[in-house]
Amino acid sequence: MRSFAHRLLAVCCISLRTLIPGGAGEAHAQETSGSAGAAIGGAALGAASGAMLGVTASLIPCSKTLSQLACARASTLSAGVIGLGSGTLVGAWDSSRLGSSAKGAAIGFGAGAAVGFVLKEVVRQYGWLDVLSTGAIGMSIGAQPEGAVLGLGAGVFVGSILWLTVPSFGLPDLAAVGLIGVAAGGLAAWVFDAVEANANEGDGVTIPFSFRI
């Protein structure tokens, strides 16, 4: 459990190292075609982003079930798998598109960490792991900012209507729907990117992995 942040940080570092232009690995950000390295980096970035979106979306809804942990696990794993699959395909087919996501993730991580640092100075019990956590959330949103923001808007809109019309629907429920919107929007954007990348790539589906025994 304690190694969660370290693992997440490792994923982020590896993803960025692989994907940022001029970085190591086989990805070349300005190329429109994919590569095995980009596919691997896409898998890592998609998995990390998806998992973070999934766990964030689960926080409030799953707290209303006795199987809270199982519920959160299911949300995290399913969102992570969607991110993993989509990220792999985006990297395989369109490394330039993946490069944009990686840059967004890096910016999101920085912005999130900055917010976390301010919180650390203000909130008594917050420490560096919380700075890393806000950075990770920022990373997950920054990887697909348009989808996350659109999802947030849709979620808040739907939540507001429910809040105004359903007496038992409280502010925490509105927040929950907003967070679900962020996650759904972010994941939808990953899937949309994969579909778009496939369309740009041309006929057929080729995943450029090679295995040597």
Binding site: S3, V11, G25
Partner: peptide
């Protein structure tokens, strides 16, 4: 070149860590 298995392992670690339990 980063070994594929290691990168995938780290990715999955992040997924699983987020779903871990405390008691």
């Amino acid at each position: 070149m980063i070994p594929t298995a290691r990168v995938c392992g780290v990715g999955f670690s992040a997924l699983l860590s987020a779903a871990c339990a405390t008691s």
